[in-house]
Amino acid sequence: MILLVEDIMKLSRLDEEVMDFAENTVDLQRICQEVVERLRDAANAAQVSIEFEGSSDGEPVNVTGIKPMLDELVFNLCENAIKYNKKNGEVKIKLSENPVRLVVADTGIGIDKEHQERIFERFYRVDKSHSKITGGTGLGLSIVKHIVKHHKASLHLESEPDKGTTIEVQFNSEKL
C-alpha cells in the first residue's frame, strides 16, 4: 500500500511538473551500472541474467536531466524486464551515444500487439493473474512515460509474445 501511495505521489508531481530537484548533467552510464547492481539479487532469484553494455571507452554518457528521475526510469524498465521474464532468461541493457539511447531488452513473456499501446497507462496490466505473483503497483511504466516526456526524450517499444520485449529511450541531443 505504501508503494502504491508513493507511486501515485510521483505521478502527481510529474503531471503537475513539480520537481524537487534541478536539472544537471547526469552520467546515465553510472546510473545503469548502479541499477544493474541493485537488481542483481532479484535477477538471480528469478534465474535471469542481467548485463550492461555501455560506452566502449568507459567515459560518462551524459544527459541533462534530474538524476533521481533518470534512476527511476532505468530501474523501472530493468525491474519489469526481470519480473516478466522466463527462467534462464536474459536482460540486456545497452547505452549508446550520438544520440544517447538507452535500450532495455529481455527474452521474457512479451506483449501482444493489442496491449502494447496501453502498457504505459496507469494501472494497466496485460495479465491480471500474473500481477499477483510479481507484485508492483501497475504504475511503473506510466512513471517511465512521464519521465521520458519530462526529459523531452522519445519512447519506443517492440515486443512479441514468448520472444521478449525491447524498450528504447532516445534522448534529445539538443538538451545537452
Results as ranks from 00 to 15, higher is better:
6 E>H: 10
6 E>Q: 12
6 E>G: 08
7 D>S: 04
7 D>F: 02
7 D>T: 01
8 I>E: 15
9 M>S: 14
10 K>E: 10
10 K>P: 01
10 K>R: 06
11 L>K: 01
12 S>C: 14
12 S>V: 12
12 S>H: 11
12 S>N: 14
13 R>F: 01
14 L>R: 09
14 L>S: 09
14 L>I: 05
15 D>F: 13
15 D>H: 13
16 E>D: 03
16 E>M: 07
16 E>F: 02
17 E>H: 02
17 E>W: 01
18 V>S: 04
18 V>K: 06
19 M>G: 00
19 M>R: 00
19 M>Q: 00
20 D>R: 09
20 D>Q: 04
20 D>W: 01
22 A>R: 04
23 E>T: 10
23 E>G: 05
24 N>C: 01
24 N>A: 03
24 N>P: 00
25 T>R: 08
26 V>R: 00
26 V>G: 00
27 D>S: 01
29 Q>G: 12
29 Q>N: 09
29 Q>A: 06
30 R>E: 11
30 R>C: 04
30 R>H: 08
31 I>L: 08
31 I>M: 05
32 C>W: 01
33 Q>Y: 00
33 Q>A: 05
33 Q>M: 05
34 E>V: 08
34 E>M: 10
34 E>A: 12
35 V>W: 04
35 V>T: 08
35 V>E: 10
36 V>N: 07
36 V>R: 10
36 V>Y: 00
36 V>T: 09
37 E>M: 10
37 E>W: 03
38 R>D: 15
38 R>Q: 14
38 R>N: 13
39 L>Q: 09
39 L>P: 03
40 R>K: 13
41 D>P: 05
41 D>K: 11
41 D>T: 09
41 D>G: 06
42 A>H: 14
42 A>C: 12
42 A>L: 15
43 A>W: 13
43 A>E: 06
44 N>L: 15
44 N>E: 15
44 N>G: 07
45 A>C: 11
46 A>F: 02
46 A>N: 04
47 Q>Y: 02
47 Q>K: 12
48 V>P: 11
48 V>I: 15
49 S>T: 13
49 S>I: 03
50 I>Y: 11
50 I>G: 05
50 I>R: 06
50 I>P: 07
50 I>F: 07
51 E>T: 02
52 F>I: 05
52 F>N: 11
53 E>L: 14
53 E>N: 15
54 G>F: 10
54 G>N: 10
54 G>A: 12
54 G>Q: 13
55 S>N: 12
55 S>W: 10
55 S>I: 04
55 S>K: 08
56 S>G: 05
56 S>D: 06
56 S>H: 07
57 D>S: 07
57 D>K: 05
57 D>L: 02
58 G>F: 05
58 G>W: 02
58 G>C: 04
59 E>F: 09
59 E>A: 12
59 E>M: 05
60 P>A: 02
60 P>H: 03
61 V>K: 03
61 V>N: 03
61 V>Q: 03
62 N>Q: 05
62 N>M: 02
63 V>Q: 14
63 V>H: 14
63 V>E: 15
64 T>M: 03
64 T>F: 01
65 G>L: 10
65 G>V: 06
65 G>Y: 11
65 G>M: 11
65 G>P: 14
65 G>E: 09
66 I>Q: 07
66 I>P: 08
67 K>C: 07
68 P>M: 09
68 P>N: 11
69 M>Y: 15
70 L>Y: 08
70 L>M: 07
70 L>G: 07
71 D>K: 07
71 D>F: 14
71 D>Q: 13
71 D>H: 14
